[in-house]
Design a protein around this nucleic acid. Structure first.
Lengths: 216, 216
DNA sequence: GAGCACAAGATAGTCAACGATTTCGTTGGC
DNA sequence: GCCAACGAAATCGTTGACTATCTTGTGCTC
């Protein structure tokens, strides 16, 4: 259960609830399939039901929440099959971003990518999967930003939000970081070489590797 | 302006408004940037503002409607740049679907695709761009369905809905159908040959061709 | 004891009214 | 004649109450 909200100030209620709820779900503070009763949330956040309702409708179309008529809302559980499907879409879009990033990025930005790459290598060598996971997240975010592809960016953010529960699982699997690291370094190299086709191919290779891993 | 709603049957108000509004916008019955006043819509559809509001919130996160605090909603105008970005994403995802469809489709389904291909050829030969456009839409929908990729399907539907206004423009351009036809026939052939890589490549080729055309 | 009908509780859906914010026209001063 | 302050109109944001629907538990019948 999330803490009892914040200031509940005059700030727009829906926006606030939306943000807090999204964060709570995204960070796994709420159990999967947990029931989200409008009345309860309204009291917790100190707003009216209408605001909670609006937030839930929005979260539903973001895929974070599931709503059943007259029955209530709950945190959506993403099955493994679905996680695979989502990952496939993610990678298709990230390949697009990588290709664009390879073309549009300037030298400074490329240097930043390289720095991230070495940091990731170190994290793996030091056996720190959580640091690695965090850096990895940063890398993907950075590539998205470099691409300048706003639409893809928005879609990816949405898709990623649905995967929280599955992300940890993968990062902590022994041997997994080593493999994904090399794939990611290849991706970074391709972008640095400003080679969009290679970047795309590298992202694709990473796709198959990831979905295979998800299959267990 | 859309007609005065339908039966207003026992169907849930929000669902009804949502459907009608979405259709009205998707089919271009509402001018771009047209103001959508909650009160007016409520009266037109014979429901209360709350229901309209809920529908508008949902449409906003689908990207069909733009809402500004205390200022109202309006039909979102998609700039050409944005249309290009959307098309890029569409194609990345459709390439994924095509590749999967090439693997999973059965003989009967492949025959259906082939039939669509010949119908499209005929439409172009007969100089009927609207029929061609419609068939084309069917083709893409079919491929999506064959892929069995639910997530990609949902994303694509959403992206397509945002492009209505730009679609006609392209279909009616002289010479355009001929080019896109050959690309699409290649795509169909690749899927029929159950060759995922070629299918993906064909979809990609179509991507560049389409975005180039959008650039004018 | 099993199954069905009914009633009670919980919860989302809908509604009408009130309050806040923005926009735009009007008036007064300079 | 132009600009600023004021005020009215329009519109969204919020609220509390009411209603419809679903779930669950209970008692009655067979």
């Amino acid at each position: 259960m999330p803490k009892h909200a914040g200031p509940s100030t005059g700030e727009q209620a829906r926006q606030q609830v939306l943000g807090q709820l999204r964060q709570a779900i995204s960070q796994g503070e709420m159990a999967p399939a947990q029931r989200l009763v409008e009345d309860e949330l309204a009291e917790q956040f100190g707003v009216t039901r209408a605001s909670v309702r609006a937030a839930l409708i929005e979260l539903e179309s973001e895929g974070l929440v599931e709503r059943i008529r007259n029955r209530g809302s709950r945190v959506r559980v993403v099955s493994v099959d679905e996680a695979i499907a989502i990952t496939e879409c993610r990678m298709a879009l990230e390949a697009l971003c990588a290709a664009k990033a390879a073309v549009t990025a300037d030298d400074e930005q490329l240097a930043g990518l390289a720095a991230l790459g070495t940091a990731m290598s170190r994290a793996v060598a030091d056996g720190e999967p959580l640091t690695y996971s965090e850096l990895n997240h940063q890398l993907h975010t950075r590539i998205r930003e470099l691409s300048g592809q706003q639409v893809a960016m928005r879609l990816l953010e949405r898709l990623n939000a649905q995967l929280v529960r599955h992300r940890f699982q993968l990062a902590l699997r022994p041997g997994r970081p080593q493999q994904s690291l090399s794939e990611r370094l290849a991706l970074i190299e391709a972008i640095r070489a400003r080679d969009p086709q290679r970047a795309e191919a590298a992202a694709h290779a990473h796709l198959t590797s990831l979905t295979d891993a998800l299959h267990e």
